[in-house]
Design a protein around this nucleic acid. Structure first.
Length: 417
RNA sequence: UUCACUAGGUGAUCGGCA
């Protein structure tokens, strides 16, 4: 079982879920019975892929096989339910599970409540875990810091960090990175830089995440030159930039309409053997599309394919939007089919782009059909999809129908914003 | 051999500033 578990784990890590499932299902060696670890690995695989029903099915099989599930079994399921936004199901699972929760269980739930700005419940869980002798560790605190930052409570996060030492969990590089990201997202890159200096004085080495985060923050504030200087600085400090680092720079240049320079960075990467990844290509493709340079975008798409980099849903969406904005709806629909055929399932953004394009061309009936089509593909319209429709109808003076769409949203429990 | 933490790319509307 030990060896098979290692193989399964490797497959799950490589996101080869089908193969992992095949290995598990075939029970390749009859003499080798799956143990609790085996089940945990498979359950974790399904959970991470967002397939909660399958995870629950394996959980039942595990019980049937007489193996008692533990926290390692339930944690990935609870995490997946949280990620899907279903805190009620996660909490239900947590309250009814047949084993004791561990620090990870509490950390998952605390982070989820925090990210939904349900701070009271997060605090309740924090004191509950302490009461049960479950001591929050540095990951717990880091999750708190990060989710506070992501909900716009950077000051609260900063305050928590100052208290961490007293709690026996001094801030580490992840803590600082989370906080630095908070300041960057709050458009305060100077505070981020201040923290970079501070962490060094505390003996904590900045890593590639630290630098990439600040570089991205500077770029988002339009300070690409400073970002490039920081890139030099990180090189001098012996920290090798990675795809995130270059991605931030390239995107920053694109946002400033410095498409020429962005493509130069791209070329330099290609030549230096450091092949740009799908994110970097998509970033430039998006910018080219926004500039109406569909030809150039298509050429870059070909170049990325030549580099054996497969376009993903974001790449296609950028292209589809570019086509729509030029009124080339037919080609946009073709590309939607093309991505599907290439094994890249269109998502709610893909369909929304098309819906918006059709609405802008006053093709409301066709837009309606796309809504049906996406539902049929198991992809529910979201608030943006509906907004395009409401806007299209309103601008044509078809206000009654627009109101009807609002009702439809309500029925689909999609809250208007 | 199995669980929880940090960084880059895509869609609507409206408003402010230029």
């Amino acid at each position: 079982a030990f060896s098979w578990n290692s193989l399964l784990q490797a497959l799950v890590r490589a996101r080869k879920h089908r193969q992992a499932c095949d290995v598990f299902r075939s029970r390749l060696v009859p003499a080798c019975k799956p143990d609790a670890c085996t089940y945990n690995i498979v359950i974790s695989g399904f959970s991470n892929a967002g397939d909660i029903p399958s995870a629950l099915k394996i959980l039942e099989e595990m019980k049937t096989a007489g193996l008692p599930p533990d926290a390692f079994t339930f944690n990935p399921i609870i995490a997946a339910q949280c990620k899907a936004g279903d805190l009620e199901a996660a909490t239900q699972q947590f309250r009814t599970m047949s084993c004791s929760p561990n620090v990870a269980t509490y950390t998952i739930l605390i982070g989820a409540y925090c990210r939904k700005s349900r701070l009271d419940e997060a605090c309740q869980l924090l004191s509950e875990m302490r009461g049960r002798g479950c001591i929050p560790n540095s990951i717990t605190y880091n999750v708190l810091v990060d989710s506070l930052c992501k909900t716009g409570n950077v000051d609260m996060a900063q305050e928590l960090v100052t208290r961490m030492i007293g709690e026996g969990c001094p801030p580490n590089v992840v803590t600082f990175n989370a906080l630095i990201n908070g300041y960057c997202k709050a458009a305060k890159p100077d505070d981020a830089r201040r923290l970079l200096k501070l962490m060094v004085t505390k003996g904590i080495q900045p890593d590639v995440v630290t630098y990439s985060t600040i570089i991205s923050g500077l770029c988002k504030s339009g300070r690409v030159q400073e970002a490039r200087e920081l890139l030099d600085e990180m090189n001098r400090a012996g920290c090798r930039p990675n795809a995130f680092t270059y991605g931030a720079i390239v995107h920053g240049l694109c946002r400033l309409d410095k498409l020429q320079e962005a493509q130069e960075v791209l070329h330099r990467m290609e030549e230096s053997g450091c092949v740009p990844d799908v994110v970097i290509y998509s970033s430039v493709i998006h910018a080219l599309c926004k500039a109406g340079r569909l030809q150039d975008a298509q050429q870059l798409l070909r170049r990325m394919r030549a580099q054996r980099k497969a376009p993903d849903v974001v790449t296609y969406n950028a292209m589809i939007d570019g086509l729509c904005k030029l009124g080339r709806l037919h080609e946009a629909l073709q590309m939607l089919e093309q991505m599907d055929g290439a094994g890249c399932a269109p998502d709610v953004v893909s369909y929304s782009i098309i819906v918006n394009g059709l609405c802008k061309s006053s093709k409301l009936e066709e837009a309606r059909l796309v809504l049906e089509k996406m539902r049929g593909a198991g992809c529910n319209p979201d608030v943006v999809t509906y907004s395009s429709l409401v806007d299209g109808l309103s601008k044509l003076g078809r206000l009654d129908e627009a109101r009807e769409v609002l009702e439809e949203m309500k029925r689909a429990s999609c809250a208007p914003n």
